[in-house]
Each structure stands twice: as C-alpha cells, then as structure tokens.
C-alpha cells in the first residue's frame, strides 16, 4: 500500500484544493449571505422571504448539506485516482 512521496504530496495538494474550494462556498453562504451582506440581500424578495433572512435561517443549511455530499463525491474520485481508497 505504500505510495511514493511525490504521489502522497500530489494527493494532499489536490485534497487541500478541494477543501479550499468548498470551504470558500461555505464561508460566502453563511458568513457572507447570512451575516455580512444580509441587509443588502434583504431588499430582494424570495418566495415570501427577504433573501438575506432566508439564507441566514434556512438557505445556508441546505447549502451545507449539498457541500458535504459534493465533498464526499470529489474525495471518492480523488481516492480512486491515487489508489488510496479502501
């Protein structure tokens, strides 16, 4: 099962890129839409909700769920690519 040092580093690098991509979305949706820009977004109506309020109380949670599953699928592919899956 031992993999070369270069392979291990490349795997870790791609892993970090995946994490950074998804964590950026996580940050923008929760701290961005739900906290920092919430007042601006509230000017927009979204199915009867002010949009900022919706993100802060519901929308962010839906996105969190989607993010974890997207991450699971990306990592499964990455694990197979580098042959480190179980």
């Amino acid at each position: 099962m031992s993999m070369t040092k270069e392979n291990a580093q490349a795997y870790w690098g791609e892993n970090l890129r995946i994490i950074i991509t998804y964590m950026s979305i996580w940050f923008v949706v929760s701290f961005g839409c739900g906290v920092l820009f919430v007042d601006a977004l509230d000017q927009i109506q979204f199915f009867g909700f002010p949009l900022g309020f919706w993100f802060a109380q519901q929308g962010s949670i839906f996105v969190f769920v989607a993010l974890i599953w997207a991450y699971v699928s990306s990592m499964n592919k990455l694990d197979e690519k580098y042959d480190v899956h179980e």
């Binding site: 998804y22 996580w26 929760s30 739900g34 309020f53 109380q57 962010s60 949670i61 969190f64 974890i68």
Partner: peptide, 26 residues
C-alpha cells in the same frame, strides 16, 4: 428562541449546522 428573538437566532441555526461542514472536511 427563534420565535422570540427572530433574526438574531440565525447564529444558532447556522452555527449548529455549519459546524458539520468543518467536521466533514477538516
């Protein structure tokens, strides 16, 4: 809590679910 403090309770709703993204990825 949400019922009586409205918008401010967002911190609990986001905080207590968003932590799972950290758990899953980090």
């Amino acid at each position: 809590i949400v019922s009586f403090i409205g918008r401010d309770a967002s911190a609990y709703l986001m905080g207590w679910t968003g932590g799972y993204v950290l758990l899953a990825m980090l």
